[in-house]
């Protein structure tokens, strides 16, 4: 277990380093001089020089990279050029919307997908299976932002059950949850469809294994075999997808925030792009990538708790 954990940790650290190098290279090297890029064509030489000074651009590349990484490690992401506030504060505010949204969506996706997948696998080849599979086909084909518009049209504008957009903050948690509900549903449904399909096929594959026949020969009914033997073995592919979905949900959240005018990371990053605020873009991208890598690591840990073959390799 320790060996496995150590190996995964090393891989986590390595991924972070390489990812940060890539982001740094794209943002700091590719556009030429970041300072003149940020200020646009009309800026005077003095303003550019001043900004270069403030950004520390006069230092050597490796030094700049180390400063950037060291800063992030201590929670200092630099100053936003347009907002004139520390990027860390901006990001923290926005994460308070984006992270709950992604988790809310993930929870909904799991709550929808598991019963659907189990039902389809248990009734494979029959009407209930066909119905679930048909529904998931449509679910996968839905662009979440369009689905979001339809939700707004019906549940917010027509029936007025949920707000059509905006976010009141977390001072009233219930209002916060209400504001995030339609966005979360829009995000969750297409992901739930994928998850249900993966769960179904993993279960069916597992149900064909020899040890399932052994379990049946012991006197377990089909339902008992499904819950006690098949489900746990089917969790490995499901977890893999779940981990990947978290990154899709984060990315999807960026788009959905635009439909609902939510003040999350997505809105922040698009504003930063139009205002050429590279410091914000760089930091937010790094945070998104960090989240994805971290989730991959957590999924690896989950594998080990589920699968004794990984645990005991120590």
């Amino acid at each position: 277990m320790l060996r496995y954990l150590l190996g995964r940790l090393v891989s986590l650290a390595l991924s972070l380093v390489v990812a940060s190098l890539v982001i740094f290279a794209v943002i700091e090297i590719v556009p030429g001089d970041p300072a003149s890029y940020m200020l646009g064509l009309n800026a005077s030489a003095e303003t550019v020089a001043a900004l270069r000074e403030r950004l520390g651009l006069n230092e050597a590349l490796p030094i700049r990279y180390i400063h950037w990484v060291a800063g992030m490690a201590t929670g200092d992401f630099g100053q936003s050029y347009t907002y004139k506030v520390p990027v860390a504060d901006l990001v923290a505010q926005r994460l308070a919307v984006s992270l709950p949204l992604a988790l809310y969506a993930l929870l909904l996706a799991v709550l929808i997908a598991f019963p659907a997948g189990l039902l389809a696998a248990a009734r494979r080849g029959r009407a209930a299976d066909a119905a679930v599979m048909g529904a998931t086909q449509v679910g996968i084909a839905l662009p979440n932002f369009w689905f979001a518009m339809l939700l707004v049209l019906t549940f917010a504008l027509h029936w007025q059950l949920f707000p059509a957009g905006g976010f009141p903050g977390w001072s009233d948690p219930l209002a916060g949850v209400r504001a995030l509900t339609l966005p979360a549903v829009a995000l969750a449904l297409p992901q739930a469809a994928i998850l249900a399909r993966v769960l179904r096929s993993a279960l069916i594959e597992t149900l064909g294994q020899d040890y399932i026949r052994t379990a049946r020969a012991k006197g377990l009914t089909e339902g008992q075999t499904m819950l006690r033997h098949a489900l746990r073995n089917a969790m490995i592919p499901v977890l893999t997808i779940l981990g990947m979905q978290f990154s899709f949900l984060l990315a999807g959240a960026i788009i959905i925030e635009n439909v609902f005018y939510l003040p999350g990371l997505g809105r922040l990053i698009f504003q930063a792009i139009t205002q050429r605020d590279l410091i914000v873009v760089e930091s937010v991208v790094m945070i998104l990538v960090f989240a994805v890598i971290l989730v991959t690591f957590l999924v690896d840990l989950a594998y080990a708790t589920i699968d004794p073959r990984l645990r005991k390799r120590a």
């Binding site: 020899d210 040890y211 026949r213 012991k218 006197g219 009914t221 033997h229 073995n233 589920i306 004794p308």
Partner: peptide, 29 residues
Amino acid sequence: SERALAGIRGKEIGMIFQEPMTALNPMKT
């Protein structure tokens, strides 16, 4: 019925199979 058979399997009739490497659930002790 399937229910009655489940009551017999493992209790009155036991069965073992050819491939021991895959006959046991890898996730359970």
